[in-house]
Every structure is written in structure tokens, then in C-alpha cells.
Simulated assay, not measured.
Amino acid sequence: MFSGATQGLIFVVIVLPIAAVVHAPGVHAHLSVHWWVVLTLVPLACLAMTSLGLLLGTSFEPRNTGVMFGFVVLPLVFLGGTYYQWTRLSLVHVGGFHWLQVLVLANPLIYITEGMRAAFTDTSHMPLYVIYPVLTAFCVLFLGLGLRNFRHRVLS
């Protein structure tokens, strides 16, 4: 397993160049790389997701890994904005309240995917002045709780 920093480096050095030139016939990648966002967001995202991994790994018993994937990982992925833009969720509403768009704001992956949109495209995205502080807060929260759980497991 690679560390978060190594994963970020692999992404920038290997995955990004391949994705820029290798794709399905008839599909053309329209990348507009904003390097300062890539070089700051990728390490922050790696640290946040590594911290989340530490938190999840110390919160669930090994025999409950399947439960963790079903109730934590799958909702994170499917509500993480990878397959749609965050603004498209405004179409889902009850009584004028955009409940799903508000609910997904508790998902750290939505900030990463919106940040990646900002880093690699010129399409609309969540403002960067929202993405960076929220991702940093998630990182601090996950790392703090993960280290606390880790200490508790080691000392007990």
C-alpha cells in the first residue's frame, strides 16, 4: 500500500499523462490544467483520505470490513460528485429545499472532486476558497480522531 504522498505523485506523474492521451475512440480530453491547484490540492486530498483511512481502520473491527464498505465507503463514493457536478443536485428538492445538495456537503469527497474539476477543467466548480478550508478541516478532524482511536487500540 502506498502512502498518500506517493499516491499523489503517482497520479501526477503516471495517471494524468496517460489519461490525457489514452481514451475511447471519439472522445477528446479537454484539459485545462491549473498547476498551482494540482500541486496544492492533490497532497491535501491525499492527506485527508489517508487520515480518513486511519479513522475507518481504527473504528471498525476487521471482521466488519464488509459492513464498512456497505455503509460508509459506497455512500462516500456515490455521493462524492465523481459522476456528476455538485450543482446538478439542486434539481433534487422537496418543498423548495435542496436537501441532497446540502446533505452531500458532509462528504469530504465532494470537495476533492470539485477541486479536481477546478484543477483540470474550466467548467464550473465549487469555489476554491470553500474547498481548501473545508478539506483542511476534514483532514484535521479525521487525523485527530484516527490518532485517538489508534492510541486507544494500542494501549488497550
Results as ranks from 00 to 15, higher is better:
142 F>H: 08
29 A>T: 12
101 Q>T: 02
34 H>N: 15
141 L>S: 09
126 M>G: 01
152 H>C: 00
149 N>A: 10
87 T>K: 12
131 I>E: 03
54 L>P: 01
112 I>W: 07
57 G>H: 03
75 P>K: 10
128 L>C: 13
29 A>G: 09
84 Y>M: 12
147 L>K: 04
4 G>S: 15
28 H>T: 15
100 L>Q: 07
67 V>Q: 09
58 T>W: 00
93 H>E: 15
148 R>L: 09
8 G>I: 07
10 I>E: 05
28 H>K: 14
98 H>P: 00
24 A>K: 13
2 F>N: 11
154 V>C: 02
71 F>W: 03
20 A>M: 14
34 H>V: 12
75 P>Y: 05
94 V>M: 11
130 V>G: 00
43 P>F: 07
2 F>Q: 11
115 G>C: 06
70 G>M: 09
85 Q>S: 15
82 T>S: 12
58 T>G: 02
70 G>D: 00
121 T>E: 04
6 T>S: 14
155 L>M: 11
10 I>K: 10
68 M>E: 06
51 S>H: 02
22 V>N: 03
31 L>I: 01
44 L>F: 00
119 A>F: 04
96 G>W: 11
149 N>G: 08
53 G>K: 09
132 Y>W: 12
2 F>R: 13
10 I>Q: 11
146 G>P: 05
109 L>N: 14
89 L>S: 08
120 F>M: 05
131 I>R: 04
9 L>S: 11
12 V>P: 00
21 V>A: 03
7 Q>I: 12
87 T>V: 14
39 L>W: 13
92 V>P: 01
23 H>C: 07
52 L>K: 03
156 S>I: 00
111 Y>L: 10
129 Y>M: 04
93 H>W: 02
45 A>H: 05
18 I>L: 15
68 M>N: 01
71 F>K: 02
116 M>H: 03
135 L>T: 07
70 G>P: 02
99 W>R: 04
138 F>H: 12
115 G>I: 06
86 W>D: 07
74 L>Q: 10
77 V>K: 06
115 G>A: 08
11 F>K: 13
65 T>K: 14
30 H>K: 11
110 I>L: 14
86 W>G: 00
120 F>G: 08
22 V>H: 05
